[in-house]
Design a protein around this nucleic acid. Structure first.
Length: 983
RNA sequence: GGGCGGUUAGCUCAGCGGUAGAGCACUACGUUGACAUCGUAGGGGUCACUGGUUCGAUCCCAGUACCGCCCACCA
C-alpha cells in the first residue's frame, strides 16, 4: 500500500540511477524512427545550477521525454563550456586566496593551465550532478566539453575548433587587423562588443583650453546672462570638453565641423598641446558637432572609437598612451613591446606621469591644467561608461592587433535561413531581435589575451626575402603568418616558405620555437622531415600566444558534439538538431553564431529547425542572474524542500510568462500539493483494488456512463498536452494535465465512482476498477514529461498487485486516442449530473444550509431524459449533493427553494432551515443578473447592423442565450412568488 | 539616439474579435473511510488612458502616460 505522502527524495535518489544504468537516456538508434535531437546550452564549467538553468533544462527535458515516448530516436546532448574568462577568473581568485603567494604570472602559462584543468577535474562536474537532480534525461555517456579532454590535447573538440579557424582563414573570413578593441585592463585582454555593458555613472566633463599655436587668435561669439548674443571676444585658445582628461596625452588633433563659422579660419592652424608641448593640427571633420560643447573636439585616435575614424579620415597619427593595465606608458608597453607608433611623442610625456594609473594620471593632468590657467570648467553630469561584464572595470578603447571574424559576410546566409523559414524562432517576435542585430553586425574580435582556452592555430615567423645572390634578408622578424590545424601542417607550410624542414622544440605552452636547422635533434623531426636536407639557418616560429573567445567554440556546439570534423553516424543522425531551447540574452552571443558556423561548415544546413526562446529568470531584485556574478538563487534548495517534480512543474507552468520570471515559493508549494493530490488519488485506487488490466480498456465494451465519460475527458486531455508541448506552449500542456487530474479525475470521477466501487453490482465494479486504474496509468504517461519521478514511482508501485509492467514509464508509448474514445451522450449525461450537484451545492452554500441537513430534492417539470438521468445517478446525486432522496413532480412543490437546471426546476425542501429574506435576496440577485444579461442581448439584437452583418451562428447564439435566460428568470420569479406566499 | 516589450482580481501572471481566467492570498462552512500538502461555497476586475477600424474591441490600428529591456563611438 502507498504511504500517505510521496517522498520525493527517496524516489528521486532511487529512480534516476535506475534510468541511467538501464540506458534509458541513450538514443534508440532505431533507424526507422525519426531522429529528435537537442543540444544543451552548455553551462559554464564554473557554473552552479540557477533558476535559469532549471527553467531551461526542464523545458528541454519535457521535450526530450515527450518525443522519446513518441517513439523518436531522441538524443539530448549534454556538455559544458570551458568559459575562458570566467574560469580563469575563478582559478586566479583561488590562487590569490590560497595565501601561497602565487599568481598566474609567477606560475607560468603551462603550470597555470594545468591548475585550471585540476580545478575542472575537482569542481567542474558540479552542475552535471545538479542537472541529474532535476531529472535531466541527457545521454551522459556522450557528454562533451568545449575544450575536449585534458589527456588528449589533439582531441576531436580541439581539432574542430582548429579546422574552423583554419578554413575560415583560408576563405578570408578570418583576418588579423590592427584596430581599436574594447580592452579590459583588469584581465588585460580584448573583449567583444557584446561583453561590454554600458552603465550610467556620475562623471564629469572637464572643459580644457588648448592654446593656439603661432600666436593665432580668432573672434568667438559671447552671450549675455539672458543667453542673448553679445558680440564677440578675441580668443587665443580653443575649448574642448572631455570625460577622460588623461587622454589628452594622446591627442593628435582637434576637430571642428567644416561648416562651423566660428572656427572656419582655424582649420589648418595648430594648437600647442599643453603638458607635452606638441603641435597638433586643427582639422575639419563632420564628427564635430557644433551643438555640443564648444563645437571643438579633441581627437585621440588611439583611445576613442570616434576619434579613430576621424584620425583615419584626417590622416592623424594614432598615438597610444596606455599600457595593458591602463597606466600611462613609459618607453614601452606592458608586454615589453616598444611603443609602435609615435615613440618620440611618447617620450614627451613627463616623467612624473609615466606608469601612473589612468585615474591618478587624470587627477594630475587636471591639476596641471588648473595650474596653467587652462581649466575652464568642471561640469558634473551622468555619463554612460563601458564596463567589462566580467571584470566590472571601465573598458579602454585600445589599439592592438587582434583576430577578427568577418561576421558581416557570414551573417548573410544566417539571416536568409531564418527568412526562408529553415530556422524558426518561437515566439516569432524574436526574429526581429535577431535580424536587427545581424543587420548591424560588426567584425567579431575572437582573440583573447588569456591562457585558458583554445590556442589560436597561428604561428609567426620571420618574413624573409632572398636576394639575387642567394643571401636572405629578414624584413620583419614576425611578419610571416602560418595558419594550420596542427604543427605538422604549419611545419610543412614553413618548409615551403623557407625551403627547409622543421623540427619542433619546446612545449606547447612556452612560446615554442620551430627551428629550421641542422643544429637540432633530427630524431624529433616529423616523419616527412627525416633525412631531409638540413641547412644551417634558424627561423624561429612563435605560436600566437592568444586564445579564442569562448563563444568561438560554443558556436560549433551542434556539430562539434557529434564528432565533426569526422563524418560520424551521430553527426548524420542528429544534425541538424530539432530544437534549441534558450533564453533571449544569448541570441547574439550564441544562437546567431551557431547559425553562422553551422551553415558555413555543414554544407548550408542550419543547426536547428526551431529556436524556442523562453523567459529570463531574474533574482528578487529584478537583476539578471549571471553565471559568474554570484547572485543566482539555488533551485536545489527548492528541490530539497519540495522535490524536483514540483520545481519542474512550476517551471513548465510559468513558461508562458513574459520576459521575466520571478519565482514564488508558494507556487512551487502549490505544485508540490498537486503531486500529493495525484499520489492520493492513486492511493485511493489502490485501496479500492483498482488494478491495471493486462490490456488496454476497450471503450466500446463499457457499460457505465461515468467510465465512458472519463475516457473522453482523458482523450481530450492527452491531445491538449501533446499539442501544448509540440507548440512549445508548455504552460498550456501543464495546465491541461493539472486540470484533468485535479478538477476532473479527482474532483469528479473518483467521487462519482465511489457508489459503484462500494455497490453490489460486481460487473460494474469490475469495469470501474479497470477503467480507473487504466485511466490513472494513462494520466501518469501524460504527466511524465513534467513530473518524471513521481509518475515513475507510481507506475512501479501501482503494478504491485497487477500484471507486470512492460518496463519503465519513461519508455512507454505516448497515448493517442481517436474519436472512438469520446462518447457524446455520456459526456452530456455526466455534465448534467455535475451541473445538478453544483447547483444544489450553490444554493446550500448561499443559504448556509448546514452540511448535515439532507433535504429532499424534487425535480419539477423535468424531461424524460432528465428523469432517467436522475434515476440512473440517484446514488451519486444524493451523496454529492447531500440529499435525502430525489423525487419527481410535475409542478414545483410549495415551500421549496428553487434553482433551475435546463428545463427542470430543482426544488429543495429547506424552507424551514433558512432565512427567507436571504433566499429572496439570493433570487433577486440572480434575477437581476439575468435581466441585465437579457437587456444586453436585446440591445444587440435590436441593432440592425448586428443582425445583418454578424455571422448567423453568432446571432442565433444570442437568441438562444436570451431564451435560456428568460426561461430561467421565469422559473426563478415563480419561485420567488411562492416564497412570498409562504410569508 | 535607434529598437523591442509590458500595463488584466490584493499579489504573480495566463488569455483573447462575440458570456473576463488560473495559482496564491481573502471570507464562510467542513475531522463525509484517497488527500487538511484537503473538501464545499463565496467575495473581488469600467482588462492603463484617448481616439480609430468593426455589427461588436480587453483583444486589431494609431496616439498618450507610466514601467522595463536590448542595441548605439565614453566630447
Amino acid at each position: 500500500m502507498l504511504d500517505q505522502h510521496y517522498d520525493p527524495h527517496a524516489a528521486e535518489a532511487r529512480i534516476y540511477p535506475l534510468w541511467e544504468t538501464a540506458g534509458c537516456f541513450k538514443p534508440s538508434m532505431d533507424t526507422s524512427a525519426e531522429a529528435y535531437s537537442i543540444v544543451i546550452p552548455p553551462p559554464n564549467v564554473t557554473g552552479v545550477l540557477h533558476m535559469g538553468h532549471a527553467l531551461n533544462n526542464t523545458l528541454q527535458d519535457v521535450l526530450a521525454r515527450y518525443h522519446r515516448m513518441r517513439g523518436k530516436n531522441v538524443l539530448w546532448q549534454p556538455g559544458a563550456d570551458h568559459a575562458g574568462i570566467a574560469t580563469q577568473m575563478v582559478v586566479e581568485r583561488q590562487l590569490a586566496e590560497s595565501g601561497a603567494n602565487e599568481d598566474r604570472r609567477s606560475l607560468g602559462r603551462e603550470a597555470f593551465v594545468e591548475r585550471v584543468w585540476d580545478w575542472k577535474a575537482e569542481s567542474g562536474g558540479k552542475i552535471t550532478e545538479q542537472l541529474k537532480r532535476l531529472g535531466a534525461s541527457c545521454d551522459w555517456s556522450r557528454e562533451k566539453f568545449t575544450m575536449g579532454e585534458r589527456e588528449d590535447p589533439d582531441n576531436q573538440m580541439v581539432r574542430a575548433v582548429r579546422k574552423v579557424f583554419v578554413d575560415l582563414y583560408n576563405k578570408g573570413l578570418i583576418y588579423r587587423d590592427k584596430r581599436l578593441v574594447n580592452w579590459d585592463p583588469h584581465f588585460q585582454t580584448a573583449i567583444s562588443d557584446l561583453e561590454v555593458e554600458q552603465r550610467e555613472v556620475d562623471g564629469h566633463f572637464w572643459h580644457l583650453r588648448y592654446p593656439l599655436a603661432d600666436g593665432v587668435t580668432y573672434e568667438h561669439p559671447v552671450f549675455d546672462e539672458d543667453g542673448e548674443p553679445a558680440g564677440t571676444e578675441t580668443r587665443d585658445y580653443l575649448v574642448v570638453a572631455t570625460t577622460r582628461p588623461e587622454t589628452m596625452l594622446g591627442d593628435t588633433g582637434v576637430a571642428v565641423h567644416p561648416d562651423d563659422e566660428r572656427y572656419k579660419d582655424l582649420v589648418g592652424k595648430f594648437v600647442d598641446l599643453p603638458i607635452v608641448n606638441r603641435r597638433i593640427p586643427i582639422v575639419a571633420d563632420e564628427h564635430a558637432d557644433p551643438e555640443k560643447g564648444s563645437g571643438a573636439v579633441k581627437i585621440t585616435p588611439a583611445h576613442d572609437f570616434n576619434d579613430f575614424q576621424v584620425g583615419e579620415r584626417c590622416d592623424l597619427p594614432k598615438l597610444n598612451i596606455l599600457t595593458d593595465t591602463a597606466s600611462i606608458v613609459g618607453g614601452q608597453d606592458e608586454r615589453g613591446a616598444p611603443i609602435a607608433d609615435g615613440a618620440a611623442e611618447a617620450a614627451q610625456i613627463p616623467q612624473e606621469l609615466r606608469g601612473l594609473d589612468r585615474y591618478e594620471a587624470r587627477d594630475k593632468i587636471v591639476a596641471k591644467f588648473e595650474a596653467l590657467g587652462l581649466l575652464q570648467e568642471i561640469e558634473s553630469k551622468k555619463i554612460e561608461q563601458p564596463f567589462g561584464d566580467r571584470s566590472g572595470v571601465v573598458i579602454e578603447p585600445y589599439l592592438t592587433d587582434q583576430w577578427y571574424v568577418d561576421a558581416e559576410s557570414m551573417a548573410k546566409p544566417a539571416m536568409a535561413a531564418v527568412r526562408e523559414g529553415k530556422t524558426r524562432f518561437v515566439p516569432e517576435t524574436w526574429e526581429k531581435t535577431y535580424f536587427n542585430w545581424m543587420d548591424n553586425i560588426q567584425p567579431w574580435c575572437v582573440s583573447r589575451q588569456l591562457w585558458w582556452g583554445h590556442r589560436i592555430p597561428v604561428w609567426y615567423g620571420p618574413e624573409v626575402r632572398q636576394r639575387d645572390d642567394g643571401a636572405v634578408d629578414i624584413l620583419d622578424p614576425r611578419g610571416k603568418i602560418f595558419v594550420g590545424e596542427n604543427f605538422d601542417v604549419v611545419a610543412r607550410l614553413a618548409q615551403e616558405y623557407y625551403g627547409a624542414p622543421a623540427v619542433q622544440v619546446g612545449t606547447a605552452f612556452e612560446q615554442e620555437t620551430l627551428l629550421f636547422s641542422d643544429e637540432n635533434d633530427a630524431s624529433k623531426a616529423p616523419d616527412w622531415a627525416k633525412g631531409a636536407d638540413m641547412r644551417p639557418k634558424k627561423y624561429p616560429l612563435i605560436q600566437d600566444p592568444d586564445v579564442l573567445d569562448t563563444w568561438f567554440s560554443s558556436a560549433l556546439w551542434p556539430f562539434s558534439t557529434q564528432g565533426w570534423p569526422e563524418n560520424t553516424e551521430a553527426l548524420q543522425t542528429f544534425y541538424p538538431t530539432a530544437t534549441l531551447v534558450t533564453a533571449f540574452d544569448i541570441i547574439f552571443f550564441w544562437v546567431a553564431r551557431m547559425m553562422m558556423m553551422g551553415i558555413e561548415f555543414m554544407d548550408g544546413e542550419v543547426p536547428f529547425k526551431d529556436v524556442y526562446i523562453h523567459a529570463l529568470v531574474l533574482d528578487e531584485k529584478g537583476q539578471k542572474m549571471s553565471k559568474s556574478k554570484g547572485n543566482a538563487m539555488d533551485p536545489l534548495e527548492l528541490v530539497d524542500e519540495y522535490g524536483a517534480d514540483a520545481l519542474r512543474f512550476t517551471m513548465a507552468a510559468m513558461a508562458a510568462q513574459g520576459r521575466n520570471i520571478r519565482l514564488s515559493k508558494q507556487r512551487v508549494e502549490g505544485y508540490r500539493n498537486f503531486g500529493t493530490k495525484l499520489w492520493n488519488a492513486a492511493r485511493f485506487c489502490q485501496m479500492n483494488e483498482c488494478v491495471s488490466p493486462a490490456e488496454d480498456v476497450d471503450p466500446a465494451a463499457l457499460n457505465e456512463t461515468v467510465n465512458k465519460w472519463i475516457l473522453g475527458e482523458l482523450a481530450k486531455t492527452a491531445a491538449e498536452v501533446a499539442r501544448g508541448i509540440e507548440d512549445y506552449r508548455f504552460n498550456e500542456a501543464a495546465g491541461a494535465a493539472y486540470r484533468f487530474i485535479w478538477n476532473v479525475f479527482c474532483d469528479w470521477y473518483l467521487e462519482l465512482i465511489k457508489p459503484l466501487l462500494n455497490g453490489e453490482d460486481e460487473a460494474a465494479k469490475a469495469e470501474t476498477r479497470a477503467v480507473a486504474a487504466w485511466t490513472l496509468d494513462q494520466t501518469l504517461k501524460l504527466l511524465h514529461p513534467f513530473m518524471p519521478f513521481l509518475t515513475e514511482e507510481l507506475w512501479e508501485k501501482l503494478a504491485e498487485f497487477g500484471p507486470e509492467r512492460p518496463g519503465f514509464l519513461m519508455l512507454q508509448a505516448w497515448p493517442d486516442f481517436g474519436p472512438e474514445w469520446t462518447d457524446a451522450a455520456a459526456s452530456a449525461e455526466i455534465d448534467w449530473v455535475i451541473r445538478l450537484i453544483t447547483e444544489v451545492r450553490g444554493v446550500r452554500g448561499d443559504l448556509n444550509v448546514p452540511p448535515g441537513a439532507k433535504p429532499v430534492l424534487t425535480l419539477a417539470n423535468a424531461s424524460d431524459e432528465a428523469q432517467g438521468r436522475a434515476r440512473r445517478h440517484d446514488g451519486v446525486l444524493t451523496r454529492l449533493a447531500r440529499l435525502d432522496r430525489i423525487e419527481i413532480a410535475n409542478v414545483a412543490p410549495d415551500g421549496t427553494v428553487n434553482a433551475v437546471l435546463d428545463e427542470a426546476t430543482l426544488c429543495l425542501d429547506i424552507a424551514g432551515l433558512i432565512d427567507l429574506d436571504a433566499e429572496r435576496a439570493r433570487l433577486d440577485k440572480e434575477i437581476g443578473k439575468l435581466e441585465g444579461d437579457i437587456a444586453g442581448i436585446d440591445k444587440k439584437l435590436s441593432n440592425e447592423k448586428f443582425v445583418a452583418r454578424a455571422p448567423a451562428e453568432v446571432v442565433q447564439e444570442q437568441h438562444t442565450r436570451k431564451a435560456d435566460a428568460e426561461a430561467v428568470v421565469e422559473k426563478l420569479k415563480a419561485s420567488r412568488q411562492r416564497l412570498l406566499e409562504l410569508g
